[in-house]
C-alpha cells in the first residue's frame, strides 16, 4: 500500500506571535526537510484545509503567518500554544536559493506577500556573506497592516531596505506603492542578479512591468502565485492553468513561465 500523502499530521504549537489584529504567526515543532517558498495544507478536522506558505524555518520548527479571513483560518486563530495544528506538506516549488548566492538580489514584496519570502530573507540575513547585496522593497497598506516589524528593523543592518505604506507617512516608511520605489534600485551597477516579486496579483503584474522597464531580463525574475487549492498534490484540478498545476510546478515560478500562465 502506498503512503497516503493526504494524511494530515499533528504539529505542536510552541508560540503564537500577533503580527497585526488579523495576522498571527504560528510556530510549530517540526523536524522536516523544507525549502524556502514551499507551502503546507493546514488541515483542521471539522472545518477543512487551506494552503499556507512557510514563513519561517528553524532547526526543529516552522512558522506560518496566517491571515484570518474565513472558515479554516478563523478556526486556526482559536488554537493555543501547546495544542496541535494538523497539517500536511511541504508542497510545491521553492525559491532557488543556490542560484541567488554570490549575486545581487532584489526582493519586492507587498502585504502578505512578505510571508512566503520571509524565510529567504532571514536566510540571507544570517548568511550575509553568501550574497553580494540585497535590496528589499516591502510595502503595506497602512500602519496597522505592517507584518514582521522586528525582522524589518533587523534587516536594515544587512540589506538596503525601502519600506513603504500606500498612503500614510510614518517614521521609517516611505509613501506609495512598492512599484513607485523600484527605480531606486541600482540595477545598472549589478553584474549578475535576481529579482523576487511576491504579493497580490495586481501588484506582481505592475512590479514585473516596472522591473522589465528598468532593463531586467525575464529569466531573472521570480514570482509566487496564489490559486484556489483543494488537494495540493495535482489531483483536484482547482489550481490548473493550461498544462500547469500551480500546486506542483508552483507556487514559485520563473517569470519566463509565469508570464504565459493566463486565465
Amino acid at each position: 500500500m502506498s503512503e497516503n500523502i493526504s494524511l494530515p499530521k499533528p504539529y505542536k504549537i510552541t508560540d503564537i506571535i500577533k503580527e497585526t489584529e488579523i495576522e498571527y504567526t504560528f510556530r510549530v515543532e517540526a523536524d522536516l526537510e523544507v525549502e524556502h517558498g514551499q507551502f503546507f495544507q493546514i488541515s483542521l478536522p471539522k472545518v477543512g484545509e487551506a494552503p499556507i506558505s512557510i514563513s519561517g524555518i528553524g532547526d526543529n520548527w516552522l512558522e506560518f503567518t496566517i491571515r484570518k479571513v474565513g472558515k479554516v483560518t478563523n478556526e486556526v486563530f482559536e488554537l493555543e500554544v501547546g495544542e496541535n495544528l494538523f497539517m500536511r506538506g511541504p508542497y510545491g516549488s521553492s525559491f532557488p536559493i543556490n542560484e541567488y548566492k554570490d549575486k545581487d538580489l532584489v526582493v519586492i514584496a507587498g502585504g502578505t506577500g512578505v510571508s512566503p519570502v520571509r524565510s529567504t530573507l532571514k536566510y540571507f540575513y544570517e548568511n550575509s556573506d553568501s550574497i553580494k547585496s540585497l535590496y528589499l522593497i516591502a510595502g503595506f497598506k497602512d500602519e496597522d497592516s505592517i507584518l514582521f516589524e522586528e525582522d524589518l528593523e533587523k534587516f536594515k543592518s544587512e540589506f538596503n531596505t525601502i519600506y513603504t505604506l500606500d498612503k500614510e507617512k510614518i517614521d521609517g516608511f516611505e509613501v506609495g506603492f512598492v512599484t513607485d520605489h523600484i527605480a531606486k534600485v541600482p540595477f545598472d551597477s549589478f553584474e549578475n542578479y535576481n529579482v523576487i516579486i511576491v504579493g497580490p496579483p495586481v501588484m506582481m503584474d505592475a512590479a514585473a512591468k516596472e522591473v522589465l522597464k528598468n532593463g531586467v531580463v525575464e529569466e531573472k525574475i521570480w514570482v509566487s502565485f496564489e490559486r484556489k487549492m483543494s488537494c495540493a498534490i495535482g489531483k483536484c484540478g482547482h489550481c490548473k492553468i493550461d498544462e500547469t498545476y500551480v500546486c506542483l510546478e508552483g507556487p514559485v515560478f520563473n517569470y519566463t513561465k509565469a508570464k504565459d500562465l493566463l486565465d
Binding site: L44, P45, K46, V47, G48, E49, S230, C231, K235, C236, G237, H238
Partner: peptide
Amino acid sequence: CFTTSDVIYSENGRVGERRRVWA
C-alpha cells in the same frame, strides 16, 4: 476534478469525516 469538505456528525463534537465531491 473534486473539492474536499468536512462533515461533522454532531453539532458540538469534532467527530466527523472528510469527503471529496465531484467539482
